[in-house]
Design a protein around this nucleic acid. Structure first.
Lengths: 360, 360
DNA sequence: GTGAAAGCGCTAACAC
DNA sequence: GTGTTAGCGCTTTCAC
């Protein structure tokens, strides 16, 4: 059976083997200039001969940081999040940082716990996609001593760097596009207003509807529960039970959209499907398959990730310029050619007044 | 601007504040029984009063493990992988382990580097989804001293715990189903045979074709490059350029499948689409939208993750029973009702001889 | 340029 | 039951 490995090689053994002091070994490990090429050579030889591997935890204890970034997200199995993560990883890893990842499982309580774990592990910095709009636990004294950036979901009263997409802008654009196509009744399928993105997108919807002078029909505004597939599935199901429902809907995220489309494909045979029209947030790998979709709001996932990482790295270099900074990405509108009016140009200008300003 | 936090509270200050020794503080932190309720009380009060947070890195240095699991995957933005990850996280976090995650970016070289990083950080155990079938760098002396499980892709000559899906079985089942539907010409869209899953699935395809006495037409077997969306897109494009191509294809994974379907939806209008039929690996959230798919092989992602984590935890508890263990999950075949012959029963029995044995 | 020594915050003998 | 003490493996003054 497998046996415990012998004690790993330490700096001490390398020193002995090379006939120098541990200080010298440490110097060559850390590329200190003050080492004779000759000794450096000896030490290197010893290191590779012995198969030395530096112990980062000892090092961390001494230098009081860990070259580690803590990441907390509401769930891991989420395309949006993973895309951002992947992009962050590239820049972090290149700078010698590694990522510690936890899921808050969409629970504030769990989020709190994971925050605690991160502090105990003394991560150097934190990137958080918050579960909800409750943010008290981000205020701790301990926490405030390390850089943190909030991603994707804005926390009302929190004094931190934030990077997110201009949700309202995205919604407004696609609603306008729907209006230009001629739809006058447009429903909203979203989630609990305690989810910051849900709230923002709802606000954008309300706004756009007002600007277009259209009535919001409360009966066709869904604001309950999670923004997941199941919820999208059941929402569209309930909608179709009603007589005289709107033909067009804005759907607040990809999961809801997926659920809704799945319901339609499962329930109706190809020739027989209701002629619904969707516009929604997120344009992901599988979005081309979303048959009822005319317009999708594409968030620049990769850039977002890169930008988060770079901002954090700057803070880590003790550059606090612009703090607390809010980086707002303007999303891109994708026209799904198969279904929509292809010649629309984005951003769509308001005919009446000047278009609303987007600070990006 | 933001200022560095004061020095964090240590065990020492708690001790002073509570009027006890640091050993006692350590004892209450670690729930040692040998502490009077009264002192325990005092110490706890001091801890919460001071806002003490245990320093895990110091602890790790002392006890010589980190309660940390290293994870290396070829890419992070991959639904399959993330689903497994999410499930692992649940069981690890419950046992007090946290996960350090790196991407090997589909590069063997990068994989090697990340392995090194993991060793430096002295993770307690490793879960690896290998990039390819080259496995020399997993043999190191240092590495062999910690538990490791290889997931999803089997490494030929490597003496480790492994958990994966029975790829051949899955392919064989869906090919049989296709055959029973009446297809006699079935192509294969896969990827480089250096990717272990691609290889296994190809082998399963060959096998099933032989059993069904069907000819493998080399012209319609795609074994090049990555198993990604782009490759799926261009493969189907090339296929359609040929006269007299087969109607049915097995596609080796979800990304290829997505690419292929996207091409078809973009290129042909709804009434006008070629009547292709696909069977493929992976049944994911968006699979119901894969219009041309008749059969999908569903890997029990959640169970796989759970099983990896539990196996690793057992090894961590020094239970080496059955090492090296190979856990083979038998996949489930999903019949896509909208498109396929719904009444097929899985597993499909061979009419002629006994069905091949699957050890699970 | 190199070595001796102190100490990062913690745990675990070992005394008492 | 509680305190004293010796490190875990490393970095970093400070002498030489």
């Amino acid at each position: 059976m497998k046996r415990e490995g012998e004690n790993p090689i330490t700096i001490r053994e390398v020193a002995r083997c090379a006939g120098v002091s541990i200080a010298t070994v440490s110097r060559v490990i850390n590329d200190s200039l003050t080492v004779t090429p000759k000794t450096r050579e000896k030490v290197s030889a010893a290191m590779i001969g012995l198969g030395y591997t530096r112990n980062e935890v000892a090092r961390s204890l001494k230098i009081r940081h860990t070259r580690t970034i803590g990441i907390i997200a509401p769930e891991l199995s989420n395309t949006f999040f993973m895309e951002v993560l992947e992009s962050m990883e590239k820049v972090f890893s290149q700078r010698g940082y590694t990522m510690v990842i936890c899921s808050s499982s969409n629970s504030v309580e769990e989020e709190q716990k994971k925050l605690q774990v991160m502090m105990e592990r003394t991560v150097d910095a934190l990137v958080i996609i918050p579960v909800s709009d409750v943010s008290d636990h981000f205020q701790g004294k301990m926490l405030s001593s390390i850089p943190m950036v909030i991603v994707d979901r804005q926390l009302p009263r929190l004094h931190t760097d934030t990077v997110l997409t201009d949700n309202r802008y995205g919604v407004q654009q696609v609603i306008k596009a729907l209006v230009q196509e001629g739809f006058t009744r447009i429903g909203f399928i979203g989630g609990s207003l305690h989810i910051p993105t849900a709230k923002e997108r709802y606000a954008g919807y309300l706004n756009a509807m007002e600007e277009a002078n259209l009535t919001v029909e409360g009966e066709y505004v869904f604001l309950e529960g999670a923004m997941d597939q199941k919820s999208g599935y059941s929402s569209i199901q309930r909608i179709l039970q009603k007589q005289d429902h709107p033909q067009a809907f804005f759907i607040a995220n990809d999961l809801l959209h997926l659920g809704a489309t799945t319901y339609l494909m499962e329930t109706f045979s190809p020739g027989n499907r209701p002629s619904l029209v969707f516009a929604s947030f997120d344009y992901l790998s599988y979005s081309p398959l979303l048959q009822f979709c005319h317009y999708a709001v594409f968030q620049p996932l990769e850039e977002i990730g890169k930008s988060v990482a770079e901002l954090l790295l700057r803070r880590l270099d003790d550059d606090w310029e612009g703090f607390p900074q809010q980086i707002l990405f303007k999303p891109e509108i994708k026209v799904m050619h198969a279904n929509a009016t292809p010649q629309l140009q984005f951003p769509i200008q308001d005919s009446g007044k000047a278009s609303s300003q987007v600070n990006c």
